[in-house]
Amino acid sequence: MTGAWKKFSAQAGITMSEPVVEQMFGGERDPQRVADERRWFAHEMRASTYWQPDAAVLRAATPRIVVGIGGDSAGQLCDRTSRALAQSLGTEPTTFPGGHTGFVEIPDVFATHLRTVICEG
């Protein structure tokens, strides 16, 4: 699985050192997690990369939509697609602390910022 994750990361603009890749995706791993990843690469990833939201429906939605971007993920695929979504909605993206998975990396800081964003709306 390390080869698939390296290719995905490169295409997404995510840089990881070889030791980090090996720690995250190599060696002995939970068989269920590996099976889930195989399914994601084989059946789910492609569909998710071609899916496009209906911007008109989202703009008309009653709840306020906040497009969040991790401040440390600038230039990555998740950053670029989130900016495109925000533009199609006629709004500015909101920057959150951390990278694409800032809610996992620094959950307390992320949660504090999220509360601020929600309360401002």
Rank of each mutant, 00 (worst) to 15 (best):
G99M: 12
I106D: 09
H100C: 12
T94A: 12
Q87H: 11
S82A: 14
L85E: 03
G68F: 05
D36R: 12
G3L: 13
M45T: 00
A74I: 00
G26D: 05
D30G: 05
H113S: 14
G75P: 01
S82K: 04
I106E: 14
P31V: 04
D72H: 13
C119E: 13
T116M: 10
S17C: 02
K7C: 10
E44N: 03
A60R: 13
M1A: 14
K6P: 07
T91Q: 14
S82F: 05
Q32I: 11
L114S: 05
Q52T: 10
E18I: 10
G99F: 11
A10Y: 07
I65G: 02
R80S: 01
T101C: 09
G68T: 14
H43N: 13
F96S: 10
A74D: 05
V20T: 15
W5F: 15
Y50M: 07
E105P: 03
K7V: 15
G26W: 01
K7G: 14
A10E: 15
M1I: 14
T116R: 15
Q11E: 10
E37S: 12
A86I: 09
M1G: 08
W5P: 00
T49W: 04
G102W: 05
K6S: 14
P31S: 03
G70K: 06
E28W: 00
G102P: 07
T112W: 01
E28Y: 05
R29G: 00
A60N: 12
D108H: 07
R59V: 07
G121I: 09
T62N: 01
A42M: 10
G13Y: 01
A60G: 09
I118D: 03
A56D: 12
L58A: 13
D108C: 03
R38S: 00
T15G: 04
T81N: 05
G121N: 10
F110M: 02
R59T: 02
M16L: 15
P31W: 04
E22W: 06
D54M: 05
I65C: 04
V34C: 01
M16N: 01
G13A: 04
S48I: 00
G102D: 08
E44L: 08
T62W: 03
P63R: 01
A84H: 00
R83M: 04
P19G: 13
R38Y: 06
I118Y: 06
P19S: 13
P31C: 03
T91I: 14
L77K: 03
T95I: 13
P97Y: 02
K7W: 12
P53W: 06
D54W: 06
Q76L: 05
T49F: 05
A42N: 15
H113P: 00
S73A: 15
A55D: 06
E105F: 06
T15C: 02
G99V: 11
S88F: 09
V109Y: 00
A60W: 07
P107L: 01
T95Q: 11
G75R: 04
E18V: 12
H43W: 08
I65D: 00
M16W: 12
W40H: 00
T116Y: 05
T95F: 12
I14W: 09
T81V: 06
S82R: 09
S48W: 01
F103A: 08
A47S: 01
D36V: 04
C78H: 07
G70M: 11
Q87T: 12
S48G: 00
E18P: 09
G121Y: 06
I69A: 08
S73T: 15
R39Q: 02
E28A: 15
V109A: 11
P107M: 01
V66Q: 03
F96D: 02
E18T: 14
